[in-house]
Design a protein around this nucleic acid. Structure first.
Lengths: 204, 204
DNA sequence: CGCTTCAGAATGAACTTTCATTCAGGAGAA
DNA sequence: TTCTCCTGAATGAAAGTTCATTCTGAAGCG
């Protein structure tokens, strides 16, 4: 019973991330579609073209997989924001840029968006946030800097940082969801106009 | 805002007592804390001071329970909005009233809020929305009327209805979440000011 | 060059636990 | 008695996890 498959030899010296990626990709799609408990390890394995046991070589258990998935996506999104950002431009323009970039990202990767949403609103996400509450210092991200600057220079309304975040990103997240679920169809001008409306909400 | 009890009718016979209420209350708290699959029927039964089997006298199965729970809450929230609403007042005032009422409700019943959030972002909620997309006519709710009026009278920005919803309620939902998770502490003036900021976002 | 050895990657059937659901029986009212 | 409601141990299916085994390919050896 030996099948010698004339191999697709990926001819790469580093085989490591290959399987891991397959698993992450498969898990991402399945969980997005079926939810955390609707997607069983067996299904994830099948979708990833991998044996069930293999998943456990890369992830200690299902919870670890779920959390790893989240952090992977978070990193991608922050990366996308950083890439577009330019500290030189005037404040308003930087704000609009972040908003539109975020929306474009969500629309380009709806699966990422849906996963993040699901995660945030599950016990996983809640406990993560609780942790972040404790060591709040580490967060050196672009948006925080931008908003802090805006408060100091009095271009933004005088609100706690969190409230400004909510005013700015709350609508964008809701908008992305509506688009992805098919309630509305976003195009570039609608995106721009909406982000400008958010600006109206936060500007002083 | 007063107590939160699900319709009880004492005058009726002792049959169909508030066992159903107990179950709904217990399920609500447990699911909010542990998630849909983290809360087992056994746990729900214990928390509700009821035997497991009893749950099945009132709800055909777990899914039915979960969906029933959602619709109870939805009804309560819409009721709270209707109660405060007054068609006489000027437009802006009505908008602010709806916003603040909503926030107050969320803050008074954080468990309701968390449940709704979790539901919306799970496969349950998604399929519900898909259904609502098809028969969109039935929705005769206050907010929809208000926003439609606002568009016609040109007090609101010229956006699709859904976008206006997102601009108005997106921040409020995010705000409620932040408050409930302990990131910020909302008081009446902060609530008012935030809803006013939302107004800035949607007004023409 | 073959041949052997070997590390560790991958597999998937078997195992264990968990959990929604059922149902035989008990308690109490009419 | 009979009927309804309630109970919670029992059930069986489903899902996460394990692990003995197989497979793969690189390194060592003659």
């Amino acid at each position: 019973m030996n099948e010698c498959s004339f191999t697709y030899r990926k001819e790469k010296t580093m085989t490591m991330p290959d399987k891991r990626n397959d698993i992450i990709q498969g898990a991402l799609e399945l969980i997005t579609e079926k939810g955390f408990h609707g997607a069983t390890m067996a299904m994830i394995a099948e979708k990833s073209d991998v044996a069930v046991g293999t998943i456990y070589r890369y992830f200690e258990n299902k919870d670890v997989l779920i959390n790893a998935l989240y952090h992977e996506l978070e990193e991608k999104i922050l990366g996308a924001l950083r890439k577009e950002y330019s500290a030189e431009k005037p404040f308003r323009e930087r704000f609009l840029l972040i908003g539109t970039t975020l929306l474009h990202y969500f629309i380009s990767f709806p699966v990422h968006f849906r996963y993040m949403e699901q995660y945030h609103n599950s016990p996983y996400g809640i406990s993560l946030r609780r942790d972040q509450l404790l060591n709040k210092a580490d967060d050196v991200d672009i948006t925080r800097q931008l908003f802090t600057e805006g408060i100091i220079q009095q271009v933004l309304k005088d609100f706690p940082l969190a409230v400004l975040f909510d005013l700015a990103f709350g609508p964008l997240v809701a908008l992305a969801r509506d688009h992805i679920l098919g309630f509305i169809v976003l195009d570039d001008t609608l995106i721009t106009r909406t982000v400008e409306a958010c600006w109206d909400g936060v500007k002083r």
